[in-house]
Nucleic acid binder design. Structure first.
Length: 341
DNA sequence: AATTCTATCAACCGCCAAGTC
DNA sequence: CGACTTGGCGGTTGATAGAAT
């Protein structure tokens, strides 16, 4: 179930993740997002390779991961999708909110495969691609155009218009939260309703810039004492998960911070509140309050994608502006409440 | 109670495509 | 255009828990 911790030749840890490592990774990604998986462990104070961090986050730590037993509906969906598209676990996972490709793959191999075999002629015989060697299968599949018709129409449509849906690649997509994204929702209410089904849980989580919850007290409980990592902006050590704006609030560089933050480019409220903070000699807490109310909250503090599950309850009642759609939603509204509550 | 077997699933590995230089 | 980097995917491994003997 878990692997014995060990180190590779570069001194990077392998094997089971400790609670402390989880906390560091969660705190870091919650605060800064996954701007570069390879660099991230260095900044987050982790002795892990980026790949391992990404995997841990995607398969275990990120919000909205659904654990536990599969419902009959979920199993049927997996079987049906597997029948039509084979071992395309990531595509199948996109149809099952809260389930990861790894988890679905495991569940298939441990349960569903046997069940399907018992129920009928093995699907392998129906699909010639499954008779190929793994590498050949993959090669062949990737040569084919993505077949979104396999998805349900609504989801397909949304995925196609999503800023960070499964689409070719990533480094440019890493700055995917932009005002352009709002265009995809011609009617924001409709978009919200549609996405609530099963979409955001998967694709939205791949966005790279999401920031800390505004529930400072709760964050403090979680990370304050134990977490240290580097800011990608300042290249210095922080001991507070929300240090970016807390600690720098009195700095003359604050405007520069905001300007260089990934999601700030179009937010004039940011400039307003932060300039006020920097210019007016007000206290940190006052400035923070202002910023919470105007900038951080609206722009990315309440981006629900990276708020760990444990953070959700205290935020339930808070209204905020989605970073993607220019509308007010309760936090984690896009990806969370419809899939879990 | 001790040992062996089996199922589970977190984590690793290698590969590939897309992006960047 | 080629080398390199990065993120993502699917196959596989192996430690562990629980069941069976």
């Amino acid at each position: 179930m878990v692997r014995t911790p060990s180190c590779d030749k570069n001194g990077l840890k392998k094997g089971t993740w400790t609670a402390e490592e989880d906390r560091k990774l969660t705190a870091y990604v919650t605060r800064y997002g996954c701007w570069n998986w390879r660099q991230l462990p260095k900044f987050a104070g982790l002795q892990r390779c980026g790949k391992s961090c990404r995997l841990r986050w995607m398969n275990y730590l990120r919000p909205n991961i659904k654990r536990g037993n599969y419902s009959k509906e979920e199993e049927d969906t997996i079987i049906k999708l597997h029948e039509s598209m084979g071992n395309r676990w990531s595509v199948i996972a996109a149809q099952l909110p809260g389930r990861t490709d790894n988890e679905i793959k495991n569940h298939w191999h441990t349960n569903l495969k046997k069940r399907v075999k018992q129920d009928s002629v093995p699907h392998e015989e129906k699909h010639n691609t499954n008779n190929l060697a793994p590498r050949e299968k993959r090669h062949k599949r990737l040569k084919q155009q993505p077949n979104n018709s396999l998805l349900n129409p609504t989801t397909s449509q949304i995925i196609n218009s999503s800023p960070s849906s499964p689409q070719p690649s990533s480094s440019t997509g890493s700055s995917s939260i932009s005002k352009d994204s709002a265009v995809v929702a011609t009617n924001s209410t409709e978009a919200y309703a549609e996405t609530s089904d099963n979409f955001w849980t998967q694709p939205f989580l791949t966005d790279n810039y999401s920031f800390v919850s505004s529930d400072i007290n709760f964050l403090e409980q979680q990370f304050m004492d134990t977490t240290e990592y580097l800011s990608p902006v300042f290249d210095e050590l922080f001991f507070s998960p929300y240090g970016l704006y807390e600690e720098k609030i009195n700095s003359n560089n604050l405007s520069q911070i905001i300007d260089s933050s990934p999601s700030s480019s179009s937010d004039t409220a940011a400039a307003t509140s932060t300039n006020m903070a920097a210019d007016d000699n007000i206290t940190s807490s006052e400035a923070h309050a202002e910023i919470s109310g105007n900038f951080w909250t609206q722009t990315f503090s309440e981006d629900n994608s990276y708020i760990p599950n444990d953070f959700l309850e205290p935020l339930m009642e808070t209204e905020c502006l989605s970073p993607v759609f220019d509308e007010f939603l309760c936090p984690y509204g896009l990806c969370m409440e419809k899939s879990m509550y």
